[in-house]
Amino acid sequence: MRQALTATEFNFPGQTGVYHGKVRDVYSIGDLLVMVATDRISAFDVVLPKGIPFKGQMLNQIAAKFLDASSDICPNWKLATPDPMVTVGVRCASYPVEMIVRAYLCGSAWRAYKSGVREICGVKLPDGMRENEKFPLPIITPTTKAELGLHDEDISKDEIIKQGLVSADEYAVLEKYTLALFARGTEIAAERGLILVDTKYEFGKYDGKIYLIDEIHTPDSSRYFYAEGYQERFEKGEAQKQLSKEFVREWLMDNGFQGKEGQKVPEMTEEIVTGISERYIELFENITGESFDKADTTNISERIEKNVLNYLATR
């Protein structure tokens, strides 16, 4: 079985700190961030016990592609990708909210709606909607950014501004960027025969400007439907064929796990891990339209360290 990178402990020249997130390890070097997309996988805000081979590479390369494809909309943090699992960029002061945008009623929003909820993050929803139904216009349903091990919490635009998390003027810019990025992602997805259903964006500030940070339009942060057959499945009330991490959540839920206290993560057999890896490769190839070129996994940490050091030496 291929190796998976689940932990990193680098010490780069000039390093001033490191943050270990759910799936990414972020190293600070002056005004630079070295973000390593590990093979860890999380669901329901819980990091699962086994890594998924090539997952980090896929997410990093998808994010790099979409950051480049949207750099005319707003500035973003990316400077270079010196390794298949690494992006280096400018260090921004991040906003403590995630901008989630939804074009269809599904996932957690549908689960809430089905239970009787008719307002999500201050956005009122009409009665009579069905699962996977398209909204007249995309809606923004922000969340707070939780620390590792804690759950992100839904929050309204009004509460964000009232609590001083983001100023009214800056929130207007985040909203504008969010909708424009989503429109661009929707266009690119349509060219691939896909529907961009929902996604999240994170922003920060650098040198007085608002920057797009972190990943965008990856299957970890986004949900895609296949366009072909969408309408027919919707009319019949059938599940949509989709590209997202939802299949992992569904496997967990089918085995009695939703991240709640007292619940135990089901056993991740080699067969399960390999299956998830293969699904991620399918996601990569469908989203990008490119064949996935597996990087050498003989010694991932050594490879990353060498590539990052070479990049830093050229700056």
Rank of each mutant, 00 (worst) to 15 (best):
1 M>W: 14
2 R>N: 15
2 R>M: 14
2 R>A: 14
2 R>T: 14
3 Q>W: 00
4 A>K: 06
4 A>H: 07
5 L>I: 00
5 L>R: 01
5 L>A: 01
6 T>S: 10
6 T>R: 02
6 T>V: 15
7 A>Q: 11
9 E>Y: 09
9 E>H: 13
9 E>F: 08
10 F>A: 06
10 F>T: 06
11 N>Y: 03
11 N>V: 11
12 F>K: 07
13 P>D: 04
13 P>M: 05
13 P>G: 01
14 G>H: 07
15 Q>Y: 06
16 T>M: 12
16 T>R: 12
16 T>K: 12
17 G>K: 06
18 V>N: 02
18 V>W: 01
18 V>I: 07
20 H>M: 04
21 G>D: 04
21 G>I: 02
21 G>W: 03
23 V>P: 05
24 R>G: 03
24 R>M: 06
24 R>W: 00
25 D>V: 05
25 D>C: 09
25 D>N: 09
26 V>D: 09
26 V>G: 05
26 V>E: 07
28 S>T: 12
29 I>S: 13
29 I>M: 13
29 I>D: 12
29 I>N: 11
30 G>M: 14
30 G>K: 13
30 G>P: 12
30 G>E: 15
30 G>S: 14
31 D>S: 15
32 L>M: 15
32 L>A: 11
32 L>K: 15
32 L>G: 11
33 L>T: 13
34 V>A: 07
34 V>S: 09
35 M>K: 06
36 V>H: 00
36 V>T: 05
36 V>M: 03
37 A>P: 03
37 A>C: 14
37 A>I: 04
37 A>E: 11
38 T>E: 03
38 T>K: 06
38 T>P: 03
39 D>C: 07
39 D>H: 05
40 R>F: 02
40 R>Y: 05
41 I>E: 10
41 I>L: 15
41 I>C: 13
41 I>F: 10
44 F>P: 01
44 F>M: 01
46 V>F: 00
46 V>K: 08
46 V>M: 07
46 V>D: 05
46 V>Y: 05
48 L>R: 11
48 L>G: 12
49 P>C: 15
51 G>N: 11
52 I>R: 07
52 I>K: 06
52 I>H: 12
53 P>K: 08
53 P>C: 12
54 F>K: 11
54 F>E: 13
